[in-house]
């Protein structure tokens, strides 16, 4: 339907190449023991930091205009995990957030709902009520978020409570200490245990806290480790440390899910979280998705933004596109 709008010059190439797909169990040997897992993760191709960042920056220069921008903004809104993770969260705050997720722009009913609201486990029930009757999911951080420094039993209890309260999605944190100590099997086992606790009803997002893993090589290894352990999503960060989602670390994770599907046939989602505040940034991330993992990921089942203030900026941009004039903060809701 859109094709006619575009110059024949700027047409993208058809996708001719299909990556070889091997059976899902192709990597089952990898997790047979601590040493096989370590060998596998350390055998992944290295990442050149400068080259990775240059590629991310280069994709950031894509110019997304007019119809493409309108499409991207709506898509981005639909991918937001609208988040509140404060010690001061109250039922009132969470209800307001839920209402906003369901109907982001009360003045324009054509605005898509966000993908989910993301809250602490004790707020899941409240959130669930707030979005009842809509397609908006409730995601809950768990596993002693954000540090993850609690006994496994506590973490699993945290997860079970959230699931029991109706969480559709669990955002767990990995044990970065274990990862950095090279204890990959411990991280793996924890993820599989959490996955089991999620049961069949909740999708699992695995947060790496990329800022703490520090190197791109570690982020690539963590991505594969998470996917091998059964993550439905891999997620950059908690939003609670200095460096959260960046174009470069998200690009790297998109490469990981792309390659994982090529090898196993299993598709895994990606969620950058923290630090994405403007529509311009969000559109850049969508370009990364489009040109790295591909259009199969351009759907809120496979890509999310963990954000709060981003939504209002997207809404203001949306109003600008609709009316032709710049909007202001008084024309979007503050919750």
């Amino acid at each position: 339907m859109r094709t006619g709008l575009y110059s024949r010059y700027a047409r993208r190439y058809a996708r001719l190449v299909t990556m070889p797909t091997t059976a899902p169990n192709a990597l089952s040997d990898v997790t047979a023991s601590d040493s096989t897992l370590r060998r596998f993760l350390h055998g992944l191709p290295g990442v050149d930091a400068v080259g990775l960042e240059a590629r991310a920056a280069s994709l950031g220069t894509r110019s997304i205009k007019t119809t493409a921008k309108a499409y991207a903004i709506d898509l981005a809104i639909s991918m937001v995990d609208l988040t509140t993770l404060e010690g001061a969260d109250t039922p009132g705050k969470v209800r307001a957030l839920g209402a906003k997720a369901v109907r982001p722009d009360p003045t324009d009913r054509t605005t898509p709902a966000t993908a989910a609201v993301c809250v602490y486990p004790d707020m899941v029930a409240t959130a669930k009520e707030a979005v009842a009757g809509s397609a908006v999911k409730v995601a809950s951080v768990a596993t002693a978020f954000p540090a993850g420094r609690a006994p496994i039993a506590v973490k699993l209890a945290d997860v079970r409570e959230a699931v029991a309260a109706g969480a559709d999605e669990i955002d767990m944190v990995i044990d970065r200490g274990a990862f950095l100590a090279g204890n990959y099997m411990k991280v793996y086992d924890e993820i599989t245990a959490v996955k089991e606790a999620c049961g069949t009803s909740a999708r699992l997002k695995v947060i790496f806290e990329t800022g703490e893993l520090s190197t791109y090589d570690n982020i690539r290894r963590a991505s594969w480790l998470g996917m091998l352990a059964g993550a439905d999503f891999i997620k950059t960060s908690t939003g609670k440390v200095a460096v959260n989602a960046t174009p470069a670390n998200t690009l790297l994770m998109l490469e990981a899910v792309r390659d994982f599907r090529a090898q196993t046939g299993v598709q895994v989602g990606v969620k950058p979280a923290g630090g994405i505040r403007t529509s311009k940034d969000a559109v850049k991330f969508l370009v990364l998705v489009n040109e790295t993992a591909g259009e199969d990921w351009l759907d809120n089942h496979w890509f999310r933004f963990g954000a709060s203030s981003l939504l209002n900026d997207l809404l203001m941009q949306r109003q600008k596109l609709a009316t032709g004039r710049y909007s202001g903060p008084d024309y979007v809701t503050v919750d």
Partner: peptide
């Protein structure tokens, strides 16, 4: 499947 993310002309 999601609609294709076509970039509009940006001359």
């Amino acid at each position: 499947m999601a609609p294709v993310f076509e970039y509009a002309p940006a001359p």
